[in-house]
Design a protein around this nucleic acid. Structure first.
Length: 476
DNA sequence: CGGGATGATTTGGT
DNA sequence: ACCAAATCATCCCG
């Protein structure tokens, strides 16, 4: 939308109003020329110096004046100025003026009242509200600096996201700026135009009757015209914002898979908290930081993971084994580091060898994993029951199922020591029990398909009877 | 290119 | 506000 359009439109409106007046004038002329007396029977003052002359002369005079008035706008400025002066000085002018006044008074009623009250346009209000909501209209919200701060706060390494976000902010700021400059331009133009028209009308009021009401009305018309243009501006701004938004949302939809490392970290947490895979706010923040993703992405991930895990536990068993083992090994590693020269250490290589353990486990064959892991999986899982699959499964109770709650992953050395001890103690005893079912059994799911509420470890089921108890759930 | 994997969004419930 | 579930949209591999 350009300034020229708005000026053109306003000019149109003004021209239309002028036309109205010209028509009135014409009708006046018609009346006065056709009839012998002007409407209302107002007698024309006797033309000076032409007393007693025929009516043709007067008609001629009036006709001339009216013609001059009506064509005054067609002439060049200088010409018009001269003519105007001539008319103002014309001897018939006061009389004609009063006639015009009277006619005006009569026709004025029909003009007025036609388009008075303008209720707040709901459409305009909607646009205003939206622009306000989008932060395009309304008080300056710090624009770039706020965006930068928000981006910085959200980042913590989430490059993709913050880049997109700041990009969005930048574009929005751009739109906002354009909107404001345009709005200002229109306001200024409106004021200028209004003053101009008012001056014009005041000037003209010397030649023809123009009431203050009429000027007011004209101003109203101009303002309406300009505000309708403003509405167009607002509308197109809204459209632009919508497009930007949809693009931004599309861009967000255009997801990128998380890095392998991030998935690793998330999975580790998930499987080490399988009994209650609902990270606390702090835990989520921690994970988000570690994974270079946002907290809500962590939440999304856990939401998806829980649902998909539960939906098809079998599919995730290998993964579960893998991560349970990792957790156990990590715990063992940490514990070994913690207890240093303890006698009850893991049957693995010395400290230096632990560094590679993760990779080794990742690359292990399924069998070795399963045999190894089935002995270790109890490391930090809680109790579980299958949903309604009717599968036979094991219910295991951990010693420290919830010991990681709210703590940093792998940071709780004591629990890791416990885990290690537990793993070690379990290794021999339950190997056989699991031999026929190398699956990593789901823990923490109740019959309704939901994870059970976290419970205090070892208080419900003793470590001796917990891991060994076998449930078969054929109901449902 | 098809289809499974996966991150994001929507919907409905508490 | 958070969750489960369904669904969407894209990624990615064979």
């Amino acid at each position: 939308m350009s300034f020229s359009i708005c000026v053109a439109q306003c000019t149109d409106s003004l021209a239309a109003t002028m036309d109205d007046q010209a028509r009135i004038m014409q009708s006046i002329g018609g009346v006065s020329l056709a009839g012998h007396s002007v409407q209302g029977g107002m007698p024309l003052p006797p033309p000076h110096g032409h007393d007693g002359t025929d009516g043709d002369g007067r008609k001629q005079d009036i006709g001339d004046i009216l013609h001059q008035i009506m064509t005054i706008t067609d002439q060049s400025l200088d010409e018009a100025q001269a003519k105007k002066h001539g008319l103002n000085c014309h001897r018939m002018k006061p009389a004609l003026f009063s006639v015009l006044c009277e006619i005006k008074e009569k026709t004025g009623l029909s003009i007025r009242g036609a388009q008075e009250e303008d209720p707040p346009d709901p459409q305009l209000m909607r646009l205003d509200n939206m622009l306000l909501a989008e932060g395009v209209a309304g008080p300056e919200k710090g624009g770039g600096s706020a965006a930068a701060a928000a981006a910085a706060a959200a980042s913590g390494g989430a490059a993709d996201n913050s880049i997109e976000h700041s990009d969005y902010r930048a574009k929005l700021t751009q739109i906002r700026q354009i909107y404001h400059t345009e709005l200002e331009k229109y306001e200024q133009a409106c004021n200028e135009f209004t003053t101009h028209v008012m001056n014009l009308l005041r000037e003209q009021s010397r030649t023809r009757p123009i009431s203050p009401k009429e000027i007011e009305r004209m101003v109203g018309i101009i303002h309406r015209k300009f505000s309708s243009i403003q509405m167009q501006l607002k509308q197109s701004t809204c459209e632009a914002v919508m497009i930007l938004r949809s693009r931004f949302l599309d861009a967000r939809r255009k997801r990128r898979n998380f890095s392998k490392q991030a998935t690793e970290i998330l999975n580790e947490y998930f499987y080490s908290h399988l009994s209650n895979p609902y990270p606390s706010e702090e835990a989520k923040e921690e994970l988000a930081k570690k994974c270079s993703i946002t907290v809500s992405q962590v939440s999304n991930w856990f939401g998806n993971k829980r649902i998909r895990y539960k939906k098809n536990i079998g599919k995730f068993q290998e993964e579960a084994n893998l991560y349970a083992a990792k957790t156990a090994v990590n715990a063992a590693h940490a514990a070994a580091a913690a207890v240093q020269n303890s006698q009850a250490n893991s049957p693995t290589t010395p400290n230096s060898g632990f560094q590679m353990k993760d990779e080794e486990f990742q690359l292990d064959s399924a069998e070795s994993k399963n045999t190894l892991l089935s002995n270790m999986f109890t490391g930090s899982s809680g109790s579980f029951s299958l949903p309604n699959t009717g599968d036979m499964f094991l219910s295991m109770q951990s010693l420290n199922g919830d010991s990681y709650q709210g703590a940093q992953v792998g940071a709780n050395v004591q629990s890791q020591v416990d885990t290690l001890r537990h793993v070690i103690s379990q290794t021999a005893g339950y190997n056989d029990a699991l031999a026929g079912n190398t699956m990593y059994s789901p823990h923490g799911l109740n019959a309704n398909g939901g994870w059970q509420v976290a419970r205090t470890p070892s208080s419900v089921i003793s470590p001796t009877e917990g891991p060994g108890s076998v449930h078969s759930d054929t109901s449902n």
